[in-house]
């Protein structure tokens, strides 16, 4: 635990070294999520709502997804840089240190610039919740945090999957982006707007719909997504996140055991 605190502090100090670059890149993040938000607002303006969802409900889904995703990205940017760690051989230094390799890689780099995205996501959540005049109870807040935690673990698992692919090939990891960034893109809208294999993919294979969207729909007091299920059941779904993460972490560790250095 002390190691985690140390690593976090070091990362923040590093970001503070390059102030103007940090500022520019934070603004870039703001524009990026702002652009996504702009697209959603334009669609809502044009079509009124989406399916049976009203505009503030859509905004709520959008905010929840981006909030979880940006927090995950702050925490484990190091996983995204894993391919270059393997290519340059600096992963070897990680392996000789007396701390868990997985923890070190995850904490290797943090990305506080995502604060730009978080601002946009948080604003849309607040605006949505006011627009809906949502009655917040302790249980609802708890459910939101709980599902955010589960989804965060799930996304982290997907980033880790990207790192697993690196053991086999240091190129063409772009394709795994389909699940992480693609997942964010798809799941900023409620899953029942989609049909066929897309819905199956993000419900059964990459269960973002279960971990995040079903709890959110319960918070919004809408039953349609649950397909007749008791609302209490959604408390169980976020547990899928840590399960997926654990599974992929096991594969990753097996990969480490078979790892052969590329360095000199």
């Amino acid at each position: 635990m002390r190691y985690v605190v140390q690593a976090v502090r070091m990362n923040l100090r590093r970001a503070a070294q390059y102030r103007s670059s940090f500022l520019l890149q934070t603004i870039a993040q703001l524009i990026m999520t702002g652009g996504d938000l702009w697209a959603v607002l334009m669609l809502l303006e044009r079509f009124g709502g989406m399916g049976h969802w009203g505009r503030y409900e859509i905004l709520f889904f959008f905010g929840a997804m981006h909030l979880v995703f940006s927090f995950t990205e702050i925490a484990d940017r190091g996983l995204g840089r894993f391919s270059s760690m393997i290519r340059t051989g600096s992963f070897d230094t990680v392996l000789v240190r007396p701390r868990g390799a997985l923890l070190q890689v995850m904490l290797a780099e943090m990305d506080p610039r995502r604060i730009g995205s978080i601002l946009v996501a948080l604003t849309s959540l607040i605006v949505a919740s006011r627009g809906l005049a949502l009655r917040w109870t302790a249980a609802k807040i708890l459910l939101l945090l709980w599902s955010a935690m589960g989804t965060g673990c799930l996304m982290m698992g997907l980033f880790l999957l990207e790192a697993v692919v690196c053991f086999f090939s240091v190129q063409s990891i772009e394709i795994v982006n389909v699940l992480t960034y693609g997942g964010r893109q798809v799941c900023q809208y409620p899953m029942d707007l989609y049909t066929g294999w897309i819905r199956t993919l993000f419900t059964a294979v990459v269960p973002i719909a279960l971990c995040l969207q079903m709890p959110v729909s319960v918070i919004l007091e809408r039953q349609e997504m649950l397909a007749g299920m008791q609302p209490g059941w959604v408390w169980a779904f976020p547990l899928l996140g840590p399960c997926v993460f654990g599974l992929i972490a096991l594969i990753w560790m097996a990969g480490v055991r078979h790892y052969r250095s590329t360095g000199t």
Binding site: Q25, I31, G35, W38, A39
Partner: peptide
């Protein structure tokens, strides 16, 4: 001499206002 910030920003603006994020034909 700073490559990342300005490039990222201009690219994003091009994609947003250029119709990549949302087709400009379905904007109100």
């Amino acid at each position: 001499m700073d490559n990342k910030g300005i490039t990222a920003m201009i690219n994003l603006i091009m994609m947003i206002l250029g119709g990549n994020i949302i087709p400009l034909t379905i904007v109100p």
